[in-house]
Design a protein around this nucleic acid. Structure first.
Lengths: 204, 204
DNA sequence: GTCTATAAAGAGATAGAC
DNA sequence: GTCTATCTCTTTATAGAC
């Protein structure tokens, strides 16, 4: 397993987060050891503790990094869209592409959140809630000023949307037949317009 | 934590799977110990090894149980439906209700599949593939004989559908405002007809 | 900032009596 | 089928030299 590729001119701390994320996504947080992480970094186990207080800090830091990136990317992207539907489409596209641009960190955050405790857990949960609030606001705007149906509560629109988008990180293969932005397009199309053909009398 | 509730007249092996599933879902497979499982069962650690070859057997057995139940329930339910769209609706409803009826085992299967190795992994993956083939067949039939759009490949329809349904097990709260069959209805509505209002000129 | 060495605890699993 | 007792290995984390 070659993990260290293209982490040359980064600090040891940054490289540690990259390596940890890859291990956490593949084997899970609990099954990954600080020994492995140090080995992949080419440093001694003890050296890792100079950069981080402990194993859980690695998970906290990479999770926080993942969510902050998500919040920033999506917030910037939707700021330049005025039409509610375009804004939602942009939201979906950036969510998927940002997520898949760093699969390891985002998957680790999504799957291993339960392994965080105390203040570290609280902080990451807070960041997650802030991000989801952005999504819910876009959906609500779509109901009030756009074509989004209002017979389904925003809560469940957001639930369905995040289900569809987040779980993708499990299945996505970088060498598959769709690039991240193409996959995002398919998922947006499916979420917005549904699996049943439009314009037919068979609706509902 | 009271786990042992309502496992009275079951074999020790069955009770062990129930207890293991609850721990695996909550803390993850790797972070759960055979000591904890035995403690919740009220038996000694060593006794567990009379019923199972090892910790991984617990995960394998409960995962296989989860998938076999899913396959059986869905296969029986769709057999009595002839209309392609009704069949898909039924598929979604049974998937969600069966899954949520035993959250612990299904969530453990979904999340901890990566912790299985060798033949145990191969067997569970085979069961999962068999189940997904049932879903794909229903979607394909919907394209050929029903109103399901054929501009999105079955592969991605299945991906989007399973994303939306499976991830729900993470968020579902038994004491929430929707019962499993009501939640299934909302998700079916969303997947089939999309988030954008129908019948408007704003489509596409 | 990195190392050697080690502490202290917890893990999965087994032997053998009852 | 269940127990006591224990083995063996691995884990996270720290002390202290360089």
């Amino acid at each position: 397993m070659t993990i260290e590729a293209s982490t040359a001119d980064q600090s040891t701390a940054d490289r540690a987060l990259i390596v940890a994320a890859q291990l956490f996504r593949t084997k899970g947080y609990s099954a990954s050891t600080t020994r492995e992480i140090a080995a992949h970094l080419g440093i001694n186990k003890a050296t890792l503790y100079h950069h981080f207080g402990g194993k859980e800090d690695l998970l906290h830091d990479l999770s926080a990094e993942s969510l902050k990136r998500m919040k920033t990317d999506v917030a910037i992207a939707i700021a330049s869209e005025t039409d509610p539907l375009s804004r939602l489409r942009t939201c979906i596209r950036v969510h998927v592409t940002t997520m898949l641009a760093d699969r390891d960190k985002h998957a680790s955050m999504l799957f291993e959140l339960r392994s965080l405790t105390g203040e570290r857990a609280a902080h990451v949960l807070e960041l997650r809630d802030q991000y989801e609030q952005i999504i819910r606001a876009v959906l609500q705007e779509g109901q009030e000023r756009g074509p989004i149906r209002d017979d389904v509560a925003v809560k469940y629109l957001a639930l369905g949307l995040l289900n569809m988008l987040n779980w993708t990180i499990f299945w996505f293969e970088p060498d598959g037949d769709l690039a991240p932005d193409q996959l995002a397009e398919v998922l947006a199309e499916l979420f917005l317009f549904g699996a049943v053909e439009r314009g037919n009398s068979s609706d509902q």
